[in-house]
């Protein structure tokens, strides 16, 4: 673990650099393959429609994974994530229109803990400013 960020220099309220993501159907289908979760709602538009979704639904933990990438973009090392708590508020729907789903993820340091750890609240928001997924990450600094 080689975190580059000094705990003493990090104030509560500090914003991490936000990231924009685009998710095409092929990205979600790759995730199905990598996780071996082939529930139809994630890759088959007919199954998605049958449960009331207009389009296939991205796996929640795929958005969680993308949110956690903001942590190593900041600390330089993914091993600095010591805990994460994801809450899935709204499904991320992926239209098969060549554009797919888009969301922006931003993060804020909300708490300083003992042992040189901090809490970062990460939020994925849709272009309509709906909260899709929130992740509370506990991050080990140096």
């Amino acid at each position: 673990m080689t975190a580059q960020v000094d705990y003493d220099t990090v104030p509560v309220g500090m914003q991490l650099a936000p990231r924009e993501f685009q998710l095409l159907a092929v990205n979600e289908i790759m995730y199905c393959g990598a996780t071996l979760d082939f529930a139809g709602v994630h890759w088959n538009p007919r199954v998605a429609r049958s449960v009331g979704m207009d389009h296939i639904v991205a796996h929640g933990p795929l958005t969680e994974a993308k949110a956690l990438s903001l942590i190593h973009e900041w600390t330089g090392d993914p091993g600095t994530v010591v805990a994460q708590h994801a809450r899935f508020h709204r499904p991320v729907l992926i239209p098969d229109d060549g554009e797919g789903a888009r969301y922006r993820i931003h993060g804020t340091v909300t708490e300083k803990l003992a042992d040189r750890r901090v809490v970062v609240e990460l939020t994925a928001v849709s272009p309509q400013e709906e909260e899709l997924v929130t992740v509370r990450a506990v991050v080990q600094l140096v």
């Binding site: 929640g60 933990p61 969680e64 994530v81 010591v82 805990a83 994460q84 708590h85 994801a86 809450r87 899935f88 499904p91």
Partner: peptide, 9 residues
């Protein structure tokens, strides 16, 4: 559907 996920490493 998955609503909430907590991980401790």
């Amino acid at each position: 559907v998955l609503g909430d996920q907590r991980v401790t490493h």
